[in-house]
Design a protein around this nucleic acid. Structure first.
Length: 489
RNA sequence: GGUGCCGUAGCCAAGUGGUUAGGCAGCGGUCUGCAAAACCGCCAACGUAGGUUCGAUUCCUAUCGGCACCUCCA
């Protein structure tokens, strides 16, 4: 199905056409691994995941999805310094080598990050690559050399800067973000390096070596430029190396439009001679209980914080996906609870489908017009700029109007097939027969058996006491005629 | 100061120049020993004030309120 996406470059919903036949190449700005990722970061990754899954399932594209891991920047260097208070013993022993320390600290947070992604329902197998900045220093240096040779970079005290105004005369700077060079709010952030730049707007491609910090050797223009890469250059170099120039889609949070993505466009074009990306997609921010998340406001959560509070990560995933990525998402605990109930309602429906199906013969391809029409409608919403709210609304309305009993066997089998496809995007359900009591502790099963016996004997006082006990132990019990089902609460 | 976004029922969240978005909660009912689940039904909105229009929640203006970015924050 044809995919349409909002493009921050054109400021319109564009038809997606891959550069290479049937291959969608996507680069997503990943985390800087100096700490546990917070729920706001997670929205960006859930968005990227949604995009790539829709490309796979609805667009039927082959995928090359790259997400970078920024493991060298001011913060990772700062926190990994010898004697850092933020060093954890799980990271191992610190050594005299700043680079070794940096890699140990960032490796730790990278692994935690990957765990978080998995908990949120991302499939790590979907990644074509997760490049780490320190593994692509050579490519970054090559790109910087090209930019320098093309005349758009200069060296100042061993650091290398991008000459923005010179570039701006050749090609517009501000393609994603209207830049009003006259009205930059002066003095908001003072960079210590600023005096070394010719213009305050110039950004660092490469930063000169500092004592006690990791560095790489670099000779440029006959000068010694030993040091380490600037932030923006890594995405340009790694995306070019892994996906080529240009590639199809670049994702990130709206905050990255400027300066990060502007700089990426400028330096890639200054170095490679081409606009690097056809389609830029940005997700809106996430707020918590209607306010910007901040540590001081006490509404700053990492995924592990939320799990500790008893939330299921899959409910968080489903809650985030139930709002459109381009609007501010208000994360609330009530909202996650509501999403959970909605999600489980669908799950129960899926269980009922399996229950009602005489055998486990699933459809290979859809046969029934009813389900084909439903699929078409849901998919077209997803294809239209990833409109998950409409897709889900369509699904819920349909479920409201079609009970399992109303469906023919063919429709049931088709619907399971459709759910299985949808789960390739939402990854929020189990497409299987409801697991029987096997996962329920024996203690609970025994209580339930006693209760069934009491009910048969019409000893309802006893059965109510037993039910209360079961609930207190964290399980719910649903009665049917002469049986029951137990579920974990 | 510059640029941009948003204000929709108790809560979350789509959308549209005139016909029910959807979810959660709530309220009736069926079922049940009672519940739960399920099913049937009900309920409610478009920040404020003007304007354009036959008609505005939707367009325009003003206004109030909230938010984001403005040099390394997803």
């Amino acid at each position: 199905m044809q995919i349409y996406l909002y493009n921050s470059l054109s400021r319109a919903v564009d038809k997606f056409t891959p550069i290479k036949e049937n291959l969608a190449r996507i680069y997503s700005c990943g985390p800087t691994v100096y700490n546990y990722a917070h729920i706001g970061n997670m929205r960006a990754f859930l968005f990227a995941d949604l995009l790539q899954r829709v490309m796979r399932v609805v667009g039927a594209f082959d995928l090359q999805w790259v997400m970078n891991i920024t493991n060298i920047d001011d913060k990772t260097i700062r926190d990994s310094q010898l004697g850092s208070e933020l060093w954890k013993k799980e990271m191992g022993e610190q050594s005299d080598s700043p680079l070794e320390n940096l890699l140990k600290l960032t490796k730790y947070y990278e692994e935690e990050f990957l765990k978080d992604l998995s908990l949120l329902g991302l499939d790590l197998k979907h990644f074509y690559a997760m490049p780490k900045a320190t593994d692509y220093i050579e490519q970054m240096q090559n790109l910087i050399r090209s930019i320098y040779d093309n005349g758009f970079a200069y060296i100042s005290n061993g650091s290398i800067y991008f000459n923005l105004m010179k570039w701006h005369k050749q090609d517009r700077y501000g393609k994603l973000f209207n830049i009003d060079f006259e009205h930059f709010k002066a003095g908001v952030r003072i960079d210590s390096d600023q005096y070394e730049r010719e213009q305050a707007n110039d950004f660092a491609l490469w930063k000169a070596r500092k004592e006690g910090e990791p560095f790489w050797e670099f000779k440029l223009g006959g000068e010694n430029c030993d040091g380490r890469p600037g932030w923006h250059i890594e995405c340009s170099a790694m995306s070019a190396e892994l996906l080529g120039v240009p590639f199809d889609i670049h994702t990130g949070g709206v905050d990255l439009k400027f300066p990060h993505h502007e700089d990426e466009i400028a330096q890639s074009k200054a170095g490679y001679g081409l606009d690097p990306v056809v389609l830029w997609c940005h997700n809106e921010f996430l707020e918590v209980e209607g306010a910007k998340m901040s540590k001081s406001a006490g509404n700053f959560f990492t995924l592990r914080d939320l799990i500790e509070k008893g939330l299921d990560p899959i409910d968080i995933r489903f809650a985030v996906l139930s709002a459109h990525y381009s609007s501010v998402f208000n994360f609330t605990f009530d909202g996650v609870e509501a999403s959970r109930k909605a999600r489980l309602r669908v799950q129960d429906y899926i269980y009922s489908l399996f229950e009602a199906l005489s055998n486990d013969e699933l459809s290979n391809s859809l046969q029934s017009d009813l389900i084909i029409a439903l699929r078409k409608e849901i998919f077209s919403h997803l294809a239209n700029n990833l409109h998950t709210p409409k897709a889900l609304a369509t699904l819920f309305s349909w479920l409201n109007n079609h009970t399992v009993q109303d469906l023919t066997n063919e429709e049931k089998a088709d619907l399971i097939k459709l759910f299985s496809e949808l789960n390739g995007i939402f990854a929020a359900w189990k497409i299987q027969r409801q697991t029987k009591e096997s996962s329920i502790p024996k203690e609970i099963r025994d209580l339930a058996e006693l209760r069934l016996k009491a009910r048969r004997e019409k000893n309802f006082e006893e059965s109510d006491i037993l039910r209360k006990k079961i609930i207190e132990l964290g399980y719910s019990i649903k009665d049917s005629k002469d049986s029951y089902t137990i579920e974990k609460l």
